[in-house]
Amino acid sequence: MRIAGTSYMDSMVNTLNLMSAKEYQLQNQASTGQTISAPEDNPAGMAQALNLQAQNSAVTQYSQNVSTLQTNATVAGNALTSLQTITEKASEIATSADGTSTPAQLQADATQVTQLIQEAAQLMNTQNGSQYVFSGTNSSQAPFTVSTDANGNVTAVTYQGNTSVSQSEIADNTSLAVNVPGQNNSGSGARGVVSDSRYGADLFNHLISLQNNLQSGNTSAITSTDAPNLSKDDDNMIWQVANNGATQSRLQAAASFATTQQTGLQQGLSTVAGADLAQTLTQLSQAQNAYQIALQTSSQILQLQQSVLNSLP
């Protein structure tokens, strides 16, 4: 084949261009650690990577949801544990108040029950941030207000919240309600913390009745009505504490599941779009060597051409 003078230069420039393009690509891969950066690099891989990223982002969000819910559940759990102590104490007072108690003792007990009611109402108005945890979904509203008479005796505790709960997603198609209504006498839905007609629980009214009966010295009513009622409240509170514990462990499980999922998705991402550094760096140094060799060969050919011209007379 006849080789024209310009052919050397043209093909040299062409070859060097191709080689630098390859080198540039490899260098990019090595520095970013990715084989795919733009849609053109690998359209299907790019789409796969974007989908994995979307999943990863959703899972990250789920784990954030879980951690928010965990805070909620912990706050509610602490309040419930304290409430359980109150119901236990009230039951003890009701049990000990019998015919043998002196009126002074009964009066003292009545004062203590009044304080217990106040304390319980305060606990039921627990907030997580600005959110009342026991008012159902009426979260900006303090759920319980306590009415007292001139002597400081509690006459009524009214519920201001509602009976609804809100569901939050903790995984794909899995949702969980963390907030609980303080009172639910509707006969359906989530179990009320202090009052639920289905289980005979009505802590505040039972406590008020105990308070009144202690003050009036009506020990027989205490034994026949208040003590059994308070025992139902006790049972309800035990269920609430257990339920909260179960929710917390579900959240714990969801959190670790999300972490596992994230690890898996990130592995998937790096399989799809990540560069094998050892391989990339080897290829890069090969490409660099090839470039060097091409440059040397080209300069030798040019020297050869020069010597052909020089050798002619």
Partner: peptide, 19 residues
């Protein structure tokens, strides 16, 4: 694509802490 994910995640956050 990132922004879309962010939007729906933000809806999730509001759903989890509505107030």
């Amino acid at each position: 694509s990132d922004q879309l994910n962010n939007l729906f995640n933000a809806f999730q956050s509001v759903a989890t802490s509505p107030i």
